[in-house]
């Protein structure tokens, strides 16, 4: 192990952390916004409402993220129509391609988590709301979604960590995230073990931070549960 290499290039690695965190936050946000309607559609009984989201979720959960990134980045750019569309200024940027692929991917996983949470809400609560004269949208807003969010929190935290790990693939489309930075440094120093291990430790710390944040949020959202256990 050559520790001087680590010391020398650590600041460079930290530069990559910024990009990694940004990728996770932005695509996490977009992914969640997409997941809400998708999850609700999957929860509904009407087959016509369920079918399309099902196909979407099936595709994104059934194929590797790496394939999805390449399809968005290299695949789309192959078509004249895409290159001449109004979206091209975004699609030509690797940053936005990564955001698109990550958002679509995490939306599919989060939607399934949301569906599971919605399914787990006791029927009685929904019936009570119906008796009170609440309509469907209001029931979702007031009863089902808040309950579901609290239930899905631990699973959602795991999903964010999985996305943090998935974000390493951004390096394959020229982005200089933590992994991309590590690979570029290794291209100079030829010390893969030292640099990859350092990057690994940084990822580990980032996931510890995510776990920690979710624990705090969970305590706030589900205070009644912690009281019950105590």
């Amino acid at each position: 192990m050559d520790y001087s290499v680590i010391a020398q290039y650590f600041p460079k690695l930290l530069e990559g952390v910024g990009t990694t965190v940004e990728l996770v936050l932005v695509s996490g946000l977009i992914g969640t916004l997409l997941a809400i309607p998708l999850g609700i559609a999957r929860h509904e009984k009407n087959i016509w409402i369920r079918a399309l989201p099902y196909a979407y979720i099936f595709f994104f959960r059934g194929t590797p993220l790496l394939v999805q990134i390449f399809l968005v980045y290299y695949g789309m750019a192959q078509f004249e129509a895409v290159r001449e569309s109004a979206l091209w200024p975004y699609l030509r940027e690797p940053y936005w391609c990564a955001i698109i692929a990550f958002s679509l991917n995490t939306a599919a996983y989060s939607a399934e988590i949301l569906r599971g949470a919605l399914d787990s809400i006791p029927k009685g609560e929904v019936e009570a709301a119906q008796v009170l004269g609440m309509r469907k949208p209001l029931i979702y807003r007031r009863i089902k979604l808040p309950r579901a969010f609290a239930v899905m929190l631990p699973a959602y935290g795991n999903e964010i960590i999985l996305m943090l790990k998935g974000s390493a693939l951004a390096s394959t489309i020229t982005l200089l995230d933590l992994t991309g930075m590590a690979r570029t440094i290794i291209a100079r120093t030829y010390t893969p073990i030292e640099i990859f291990l350092s990057a690994g430790v940084i990822y580990l710390l980032l996931s510890v931070v995510i776990i920690w944040v979710f624990r705090i949020v969970e305590k706030r959202l589900n205070p009644q549960q912690s009281v019950k256990i105590a």
Partner: peptide, 22 residues
């Protein structure tokens, strides 16, 4: 379990490939 679940699979693959021999 903590290490593996916190480190990207891509890095695990690369570290094992280059590091395991050593």
């Amino acid at each position: 379990t903590t290490c593996i679940r916190g480190i990207p699979e891509l890095l695990t693959v690369l570290i094992i490939y280059f590091g395991a021999t050593t």
